[in-house]
């Protein structure tokens, strides 16, 4: 088992690295090969006030006077050593820009993840154990959550809690209360798929013959839930939590804009409007790293959680049936 597990872990980790590198290349190609000579346009933009020497230095640094493949290799090589380059707009190191913005987004995203998990568990438990009619209503919540755009949720929350109830002010978007509401905004759409997976697997597990047999042995519903149903239902949910990390990173762009928070989302926004390719490239690649790493952890944990998982057979893609 341990030898098998080590081999399994190494294979998975290897695949994860390959995926991250490919994601980098893919992003690079989208940014630089698609139409428009963006880089030089940005550099020559008088707004940024770069001197001719600065421009020459940047062109040399990124190899902009050379073929795309050379640019890619240069950039990829630097990425591998942790060097993210310089912003075309501000000439600041990208690592500094990202580093400044990261704590705010991390706070937002982890709070949102916690809230999403709480929402999802509450919905799933209600769907399972509330009396008939209420359970049906609770069951339709995820579908409703999935239908409301996250910017609408944000605007409604601001309208009521900031403008009417004065729970927080939009002028201090990083205050704990404001952060909480921003996190709720981000959490609501994200909690829906998680709740759906939880509901589906609880339904599935409680219909299994083993649940019937356990009931025939006189187990109460509460013990049945705690002893038998939680663990097998948690398995697909762990995979789903890992998947929604991506949604959190994407959704923070909108949420930060609405709440006026500084963070990775605002960095992306600025980079897009300013056609600041190195920043965009770095943020997207780092998101891919985070996503792949979280999924790798979930993947490596699954054989430890579920004795049935056969190490040779699982694949990242197959675990979560859409």
């Amino acid at each position: 088992m341990t030898g098998d597990y080590r081999r399994f872990a190494l294979t998975r980790a290897g695949q994860a690295i390959v995926v991250v590198l490919l994601a980098y290349v893919f992003t690079f190609l989208i940014i630089s090969v698609l139409p428009g000579d963006a880089i030089t346009n940005t550099l020559r933009d008088p707004q940024h006030g770069l001197s001719e020497e600065d421009i020459q230095r940047i062109v040399a640094f990124y190899g902009l006077d050379q073929p795309v493949i050379v640019q890619l290799l240069l950039s990829l090589g630097r990425f591998l050593t942790g060097e993210l380059g310089f912003s075309l707009q501000s000439n600041l190191p990208v690592s500094q820009i990202v580093g400044d913005a990261l704590p705010s987004t991390l706070t937002l995203a982890t709070t949102a993840l916690l809230i999403a998990i709480i929402f999802a568990v509450a919905i799933a438990y209600g769907a399972q154990y509330l009396p008939g009619k209420w359970a049906a209503i609770v069951r339709s919540i995820p579908s409703f959550f999935l239908s409301v755009p996250n910017f609408v949720i944000g605007l409604i929350l601001i309208e009521f809690f900031a403008f009417r109830l004065h729970s927080f002010t939009t002028t201090d978007p990083h205050s704990p209360v404001a952060t909480l509401f921003a996190a709720i905004t981000l959490a609501i759409p994200v909690s829906a798929p998680l709740a759906e997976v939880l509901i589906a697997s609880l339904d599935h597990e409680s219909r299994q013959e083993y649940a019937l047999v356990a009931r025939s042995r006189g187990l109460s519903e509460a013990r049945l839930f705690a002893k038998h149903l939680v663990k097998p239902s948690a398995l697909p949910s762990v995979a789903m939590v890992a998947l929604i990390v991506g949604e959190l990173l994407g959704g923070s762009v909108i949420t930060e804009t609405i709440f006026g928070r500084d963070g990775i989302g605002t960095v992306v926004q600025k980079a897009v409007t300013g056609e600041d390719q190195p920043v965009l490239q770095a943020v997207v690649s780092l998101s891919a790293v985070v996503f792949v790493a979280v999924n790798l952890v979930a993947d490596l944990a699954s054989p430890l959680l579920d004795p049935r998982v056969k190490l040779r057979e699982t694949k990242l893609k197959e675990k979560v049936g859409a």
């Binding site: 299994q208 013959e209 083993y210 019937l212 047999v213 356990a214 025939s216 042995r217 038998h228 663990k231 097998p232 398995l235 959680l305 579920d306 004795p307 049935r308």
Partner: peptide, 13 residues
């Protein structure tokens, strides 16, 4: 109670 399919009558995890 003894169920029909022993393979699914015990909690797999």
């Amino acid at each position: 109670f003894i169920p029909q399919d022993p393979a699914s009558a015990l909690n797999p995890v």
